[in-house]
Design a protein around this nucleic acid. Structure first.
Lengths: 209, 209
DNA sequence: ATCCAGTCTGAAACTTGTTCTAGATTAGCG
DNA sequence: CGCTAATCTAGAACAAGTTTCAGACTGGAT
């Protein structure tokens, strides 16, 4: 367990917490059918039983809302994955397993995945803190799968690259430019970096043997 | 030289070609200051001396327009890179060099880069063919840098992962969540895959030695 | 030169994200 | 309880992407 996002700037009252939850639920619901464009702010507000202005007070833009939705979903996934940790022998395999499992979970709700991922990559600087939170949770998931207590800087770099690949591969799949098989290959390929960056890995780069 | 996008469905007249060019120029111009949101369809149309409806006939959406703009710019970059090929010893180094050079080129016009990359990753299925063209050009650039005649399937996978990393790292930089130094590290890290997937690479994955 | 089909223009209309405002409600506090 | 500040609601208004349409224009075939 690493980062779990609890800024809690002004502590919300119970009713407010409930409103927030209704909004996120409506967002996920609408995203579930229809994807990104089906999440229309007016509809979210109505579905959540909240005025449009209130929706905007809670989430200052559609992107903020969807990124928050992603945080929420990722958190679920993180705890779910915790219950059944990957079984693989070596770290690379476990990470690949975990990511493919997450991937299959997203596959079950492709529209929702579409909305969340599109929002995530479209987010501009004003959403950086929230996007960063998502990134931290993702990192935590990967590190959990690796099962290492003290990853080296090199390994952290590998994790970063894995995250990059994960996001980008997800996008190419969502936009229909890559098959699931292709995604698996990409994930497996990038996970090799985990082996390569093992502290005790025999150096394989003679450059001039 | 690999893929250069010449569908030329209906061959355009000279005036039409000129219009198309004016539109792309206006798009790049406006993107250059202001980024994604500064590219407003009405303004592009006016700047290009074309009616709004015409703009939409040439590019059916803002995303299409910006992705086409990216194609255009990438093509430039590809030919530019061709003139001064990277000097590094081994393929991994040459690829990393090339990508960082491209990266520095984008740094000179961060707003333009922002507009193009945001459009690229936000594109939905209706833009797949155009996005695919961008991807092919990128692949061509990387393969050129590797300088291999017949890359193995493994190496092609590595190239795919490098592309993923490139795009995603670009996004994190553009949204201010990563420094240039961080991007360089990520690029260097992922380029290791080129060595790992060398046909003659000594296997480094004993899993259980 | 004439005519047809396709293209371009200008302007209005429509959609959806976002902002704003005036009045009702709620929460915390003395 | 009664007050005050913050919050919430309903609805209008605004901004920018997209669509639509009637009429002018162009290019090519007869």
């Amino acid at each position: 367990m690493t980062a779990e996002a609890k800024p809690a700037s002004p502590p919300l009252t119970e009713r407010q917490e409930a409103r927030r939850r209704r909004i996120l639920h409506a967002s996920a619901q609408l995203a579930g059918r229809g994807g990104f464009e089906a999440v229309q702010m007016r509809e979210v507000a109505e579905e959540a039983g909240v005025a449009l202005g209130t929706l905007y007070r809670y989430f200052p833009s559609k992107i903020h809302l969807l990124v928050a939705t992603m945080q929420d979903q990722l958190q679920h996934m993180h705890t779910t994955l915790h219950k059944r940790p990957p079984a693989g022998q070596d770290p690379a395999q476990r990470v690949a397993d975990t990511l493919m499992r997450a991937f299959r979970a997203l596959q079950r709700e492709p529209h929702l995945a579409d909305a969340m991922v599109r929002a995530l990559t479209f987010a501009d600087r004003s959403v950086s803190p929230e996007v960063d939170t998502v990134s931290r949770i993702t990192t935590a998931i990967i590190l959990d799968a690796m099962g290492l207590e003290h990853p080296t800087p090199e390994q952290l770099s590998a994790v970063r690259v894995i995250e990059h690949t994960w996001h980008s591969a997800l996008i190419t799949w969502l936009s229909g430019r890559a098959s699931i098989a292709q995604v698996k290959i990409d994930i497996d390929t990038v996970c090799r970096l985990i082996d390569v960056t093992r502290p005790d890995a025999a150096k394989t780069d003679p450059t001039k043997p």
